[in-house]
């Protein structure tokens, strides 16, 4: 791998590695700058924030008089603390329900041979082909008719059954050895205990992948919460942030602080769970 994708030894190695260095640098600048700007500006006073913009220098990204007043202002003057808490609650519920419910049906699809099994799997996968935007309107009207619009459960309930997660987990269940199944049967294990005590503990990495991907999906969701929630106290972080950004008189320093709160915890978690995130997508995408 190393050999075939790196530059050929011999002629012009210096030029090649110099070009590679420049490319690396460009990529780092493009991908890191927005984060550095968010972090730096979060800890700057409004005045410094604007003063440090023209011209762009180190000062643009590193506060010279660090202050916490944007973060404290964000939590005291806006409903951001509530929105953050709501997002955490919704994500936690969404992940818990989705991993439980989808792993149950994924196990059945992988290990029970019944007529119509393939058809059922297809019916589930077919949901991936239709854009969720196409069902928003009836979904919204249904929530109103059931009188559960404007509640936190209405944010995550519609997205619990998740074909992507079912596909991913079915794949992992199906790859477990037949011997494991047979041995448990001989021990007189019931079908439910087979799922819960025998099989589930063997696919923990895949469960972590599913949980983290669902968490990101939930944390990112914006369209649906902005439709189904009108009550300020039920709002989620993405909607609160967009609202901060659309105010007539935009408080830029609060927008930065809000972006910081919405982003940094997730990115830090990602650094630790990166492997699971990548595996989740790779395994479900290409097999």
């Amino acid at each position: 791998m190393t050999e075939r994708l790196s530059s050929k030894p011999g002629r012009r190695p210096a030029l090649g590695s110099l070009a590679r260095m420049a490319l690396y640098l460009l990529i780092v600048v493009v991908f890191a700058t927005p984060y550095l700007w968010i972090v730096g500006s979060t800890f700057k006073s409004r005045q410094d924030l604007f003063d440090d913009l023209y011209p762009v220098s180190v000062k643009t990204f590193v506060p010279s008089n660090p202050t916490m007043e944007n973060l404290t202002g964000l939590f005291s003057d806006t409903n951001f603390a509530q929105a953050f808490l709501n997002s955490v609650t919704v994500a936690a519920m969404s992940v818990t329900f989705a991993v439980t419910i989808n792993s149950m049906i994924a196990f059945v699809l992988a290990w029970l041979k019944f007529p119509g099994r393939r058809l059922l799997f297809l019916v589930i996968l077919a949901t991936l082909t239709i854009a969720f935007e196409a069902k928003l309107i009836p979904l919204f009207l249904t929530m109103q008719q059931l009188h559960i619009d404007n509640t936190l459960p209405s944010i995550f309930l519609p997205w619990i059954t998740d074909a992507f997660i079912i596909f991913l987990l079915r794949q992992h269940f199906a790859e477990l050895p037949q011997d494991l199944y047979d041995a448990a049967i001989i021990d007189g294990c019931s079908f439910f205990r087979m799922y819960w005590q025998v099989m589930l503990p063997n696919i923990v990495p895949a469960l972590v992948s599913a949980a983290f991907i669902k968490f990101i999906f939930s944390w990112d969701s914006f369209i649906w919460p902005s439709i189904v929630i009108t009550d300020e106290s039920k709002t989620v972080i993405t909607v609160a942030l967009a609202k901060l950004f659309s105010d007539e008189y935009i408080k830029w320093e609060l927008v930065f602080a809000g972006s910081f709160v919405a982003t940094v915890p997730v990115v830090v978690i990602f650094i630790f769970l990166q492997r699971y995130y990548v595996q989740g997508f790779v395994r479900s995408g290409l097999k």
Binding site: F31, D220, F222, T238, L241, A262, T263, F270, Y277, V278
Partner: peptide
């Protein structure tokens, strides 16, 4: 680093 944006919400990326 290139995967950071994938876990950053689209609202933040847009803003």
């Amino acid at each position: 680093l290139v995967l950071f944006p994938a876990v950053t919400s689209m609202v933040v990326a847009s803003i």
